[in-house]
Design a protein around this nucleic acid. Structure first.
Lengths: 115, 115
DNA sequence: GAGGAATTATCATTTTTGATATATATGCAA
DNA sequence: TTGCATATATATCAAAAATGATAATTCCTC
């Protein structure tokens, strides 16, 4: 795989194509760029979960979790499966997990912080 | 590498630790989540460039490019090297390129790789 | 060394976008 | 119907983008 890399003197339409790709990629990243959504994806990377289970694990309010899930759904980052009145969420794209692993490795090593 | 995955019944301080990591990771993602910054990183992934070269390649205004570079610098995503009055930028973290490659493969353009 | 041009960085402002909280609505099951 | 699980709407507040103006640094010439 090679990156969409603009170059000097490149034809306009080609540069535009790369710009379009970059926009799409940035939308994906924006959907990922939220601490709650990242935690949710880490949870789902292990096993599918219902909204209620995620609420319980994170200790967050229902609307908050549901809103973040909606955002992830919008970008196809999660899949859903209904079972009775519960809805199971799972990771929707294998690349997501690879990306998260790379991401967390990039972080500066765990310095203790105040909480 | 394993992801910081909250679990049911986990001790508060441990959950907090994961939350802190997720916050740091989301900051990194926010710095990446911009189409111009992505294009800049793709350009730099090939070879170091001066600000002026990046302006010329992207056909963008100086202030715009410089501000986006400042943002990337802030997160350590790029390095700088001065030579005369020009400043050369390069990718600051090898993980960045891996992440970008994974990211661009995830785009709808590459549907054949989903699953 | 003073003045000017080239290169890059920062500031100030306006406009957009995103986060969070609360309230309300929908869908399913007993 | 009632009650539970999930989704969406809305209001408020904070952060980020875009752009135009200005500042700092370096090099060159006199």
């Amino acid at each position: 795989m090679h990156l969409p890399t603009p170059r000097s003197g490149m034809a306009d339409h080609e540069l535009q194509g790369f710009s379009t790709k970059a926009r799409a990629a940035s939308e994906l990243l924006k959907a990922l760029a939220h601490h709650t959504r990242l935690l949710i994806l880490c949870i789902l990377a292990e096993e599918e979960k219902t909204v209620g289970q995620i609420e319980e694990i994170l200790g967050m309010q229902q609307a908050m979790v549901s809103q973040q899930l909606a955002r992830l759904r919008l970008e196809g980052l999660v899949n859903t499966r209904r079972e009775g009145r519960m809805i199971y969420y799972s990771v929707g794209h294998s690349g997501t997990v690879s990306l998260l692993k790379t991401l967390f490795v990039m972080l500066p090593d765990g310095i203790e912080q105040q909480g």
